[in-house]
Simulated scan of single mutants.
Amino acid sequence: MALRMTYQREPITLSDPMEIEEPKPVRGCETCQSAMEQWQRASQPGLAHDLTRAVDLAIEIRRHPHNWKLDHMGQRVPR
């Protein structure tokens, strides 16, 4: 009995591992703003260029919990 080979019809498209999507910090959050400043330094060419650190900071910004919301004036208030 011969083996039947099956193949996926559409090719798989992989993302560029060197392309880092810019994180979206929450407006008014000091922790997010600080991490974003560090991310900008780590993701730009130069002495502080460190893609591993940039990815770690992007994850931190994305996962950082926020136990407050912005009121109609843009001020932080507890949830």
Rank of each mutant, 00 (worst) to 15 (best):
R79E: 15
S15R: 14
T13L: 07
A54M: 09
L51S: 05
Q8H: 05
D71K: 03
R41I: 05
M73S: 07
R4F: 05
C29R: 01
Q75N: 15
Y7M: 08
T13R: 11
K24H: 03
N67L: 06
Q33N: 08
A42K: 10
S43A: 15
W39H: 08
R76K: 14
R79S: 08
Q38E: 15
T31R: 12
E30M: 12
T13G: 00
D16I: 01
E21W: 01
E19A: 13
R62G: 03
A48K: 15
A42C: 09
H66A: 08
L70P: 01
H66T: 04
R53N: 05
L3I: 12
H72F: 10
Q40K: 15
C32M: 04
A48L: 14
P78L: 07
E60P: 00
P65A: 01
D50H: 12
R9M: 09
R53L: 15
P11Q: 05
I12N: 00
V55Q: 12
H64D: 11
D56K: 09
E60S: 09
L70F: 08
T13E: 10
G28L: 11
G28T: 06
G46Q: 13
R79G: 01
D71M: 12
H72R: 14
V26G: 00
T6K: 08
I61P: 00
E21D: 14
P11T: 06
H72Q: 11
L70Y: 02
Q75I: 03
K69S: 09
E30D: 13
L3F: 04
L14N: 02
P65G: 04
I61A: 01
W39C: 06
E19R: 14
E21G: 03
R62Y: 09
R41H: 10
W39A: 09
T13F: 04
P17Q: 08
H49N: 07
K69V: 14
A2M: 08
Q40M: 13
Q75L: 13
A35L: 15
A35P: 00
E30I: 06
Q44K: 14
L51I: 11
T31F: 12
G46S: 08
G28E: 07
W39G: 03
V26L: 13
D56M: 13
P78C: 11
M73W: 06
W68C: 04
L70W: 05
Q75D: 14
E37H: 07
I12W: 01
V26T: 13
I12H: 02
P17T: 05
R62Q: 12
P25T: 01
W68L: 04
H64S: 03
T6H: 09
C29G: 03
H64N: 08
G28C: 08
R62L: 09
A42L: 11
D16M: 01
M5H: 10
H66I: 05
R27Y: 09
I12T: 09
R53H: 09
G74W: 05
E21P: 00
R53G: 00
T13I: 11
P25V: 07
H64C: 15
L57Q: 04
R9D: 08
P78H: 12
W39Q: 02
S15T: 07
M73F: 10
Q8G: 02
Q44H: 04
R9W: 05
I61G: 01
E19S: 12
A42H: 08
T52G: 14
M1W: 01
R53E: 15
R4M: 10
R4H: 06
R41G: 03
A58W: 04
N67S: 12
L51P: 00
E21R: 07
P11C: 02
A54F: 07
A2C: 10
R79D: 12
G28M: 07
H72V: 14
D56S: 13
